[in-house]
C-alpha cells in the first residue's frame, strides 16, 4: 500500500482503566484526505480511541503511527526527554477539538489562535496573527477577533477552538464529539465548518452522534461497541445497509430521535460565512 493509504495507523490498541477494558486490540487505518466518523453508544471507547491518537490517553499496549513514524508505542506511558519533545511535535501536527471547547478564557479570540503558533511552532507574532486571521475567517469569526471567549456563544467557542487547531496547519484533525455540548440551534454552524474542511481534503477522525452529518461527510464509518470495532465500511453501506444486528439496533434507536435525512438537509442549507 502507498504511504498515503497508511497515513495514520492504530495497531492493536489496548487500554485498561483499572479492571475495565476500554479498548480491546483495536486497529484502524486512515488514508490521507479521508474523513472517518466513529459512532457507537456512550462508553464504547470511541473517545478513548481518539485520545490515543495524540497520546493524551496512552494505551497499555499497541502502537500509533503517523506517516509511518511512531507517535507512541505502549507500554511507555510517560515519555521523557527526547521522546516527549517528539511527541509534542506530533501533537502539533494533529489538531484536536474537544467536546467542551476548552478555549482559553484568559486570552482573546485572536490570542487563543496565535499563542501556540508562537510558542510551539516558533512563528513570529506578525506571521501568527496573519495565519490566525485567516483561520478565524475560515470558521466565520472574522468579526470576533478581539472578543473574549466568555462573550461568545457555545457554537462560536467551538469554531474558535477549530480555528485554534487549524492555524497550526495540522495534517490531521481529531474531533471529539464537537457538537455534543451545543444547543441544537448552534450545531449546524459548526457542522458546516467541518464540512467545508472535509471538502478541502483535510484528513479527519470524528467521534460523533450526528448521523446525518456522518452520512454527508464521512468516507467511512466505524461502529464501536464495548471497546471493539464491530463494523467498519464505506458510509453508504454502513448507515443504509448495516451488516450486523448491533449496528442496526443502534441506528434504529438513534434515527428514532434524529432523522438523519432531515439533519443532512439542515447542513446543506446552512451557509457558514
Amino acid at each position: 500500500m502507498s504511504r498515503d493509504a497508511k497515513f495514520l495507523e492504530l495497531i492493536e490498541i489496548t487500554t485498561k482503566f483499572d479492571t475495565l477494558t476500554a479498548l480491546d486490540k483495536v486497529s484502524l487505518t486512515v488514508a490521507k484526505g479521508e474523513v472517518v466518523c466513529i459512532i457507537g453508544p456512550s462508553g464504547c471507547g470511541k473517545s478513548t480511541l481518539l485520545r490515543t491518537v495524540n497520546w493524551l490517553a496512552p494505551p497499555n499496549a499497541g502502537t500509533v503511527r503517523l506517516e509511518g513514524q511512531s507517535v507512541g508505542q505502549a507500554p511507555e506511558r510517560r515519555q521523557t526527554g527526547r521522546g516527549i519533545r517528539a511527541l509534542n511535535t506530533f501533537r502539533a501536527r494533529m489538531g484536536m477539538v474537544f467536546q467542551q471547547f476548552n478555549t482559553w478564557p484568559h486570552l482573546t479570540a485572536l490570542e487563543n489562535v496565535t499563542r501556540a503558533q508562537v510558542v510551539v511552532l516558533g512563528r513570529s507574532a506578525a506571521e501568527a496573527a496573519e495565519r490566525a486571521r485567516a483561520a478565524l475567517c475560515d470558521v466565520g469569526l472574522a468579526d470576533k477577533i478581539d472578543d473574549w471567549p466568555e462573550m461568545l456563544s457555545g457554537g462560536q467557542k467551538q469554531r474558535l477552538a477549530i480555528a485554534r487547531a487549524l492555524a497550526m496547519d495540522p495534517s490531521l484533525m481529531l474531533l471529539d464529539e464537537p457538537t455534543s455540548a451545543l444547543d441544537p440551534e448552534l450545531v449546524s454552524g459548526v457542522l458546516a465548518v467541518l464540512k467545508s474542511l472535509a471538502e478541502k481534503g483535510m484528513t479527519m477522525l470524528i467521534v460523533t452522534h450526528e448521523l446525518g452529518f456522518a452520512a454527508q461527510v464521512a468516507d467511512r464509518v466505524v461502529f464501536m461497541e464495548a471497546g471493539r470495532i464491530v463494523e467498519e465500511g464505506p458510509t453508504s453501506q454502513d448507515l443504509h445497509a448495516p451488516k450486523t444486528e448491533r449496528l442496526k439496533d443502534f441506528l434504529a434507536k438513534l434515527t428514532a430521535t434524529q432523522m438523519p435525512s432531515a439533519m443532512a438537509q439542515k447542513v446543506v442549507a446552512h451557509d457558514p460565512i
Binding site: N54, L56, I84, R85, N88, T89, F90, R91, A92, R93, M94, G95, M96, F98, Q100, N102, W104, A116, V119, V120, L121, A161, R164, A165, M168
Partner: peptide, 18 residues
C-alpha cells in the same frame, strides 16, 4: 482549573512547562 485547559494545551503540542 478544569482538566480540559491543561489537556488542550498538551493536545496542541505545548510541553508541560509551556
Amino acid at each position: 482549573m478544569p482538566a480540559g485547559q491543561l489537556e488542550s494545551a498538551h493536545a496542541i503540542g505545548m510541553s508541560e512547562t509551556q
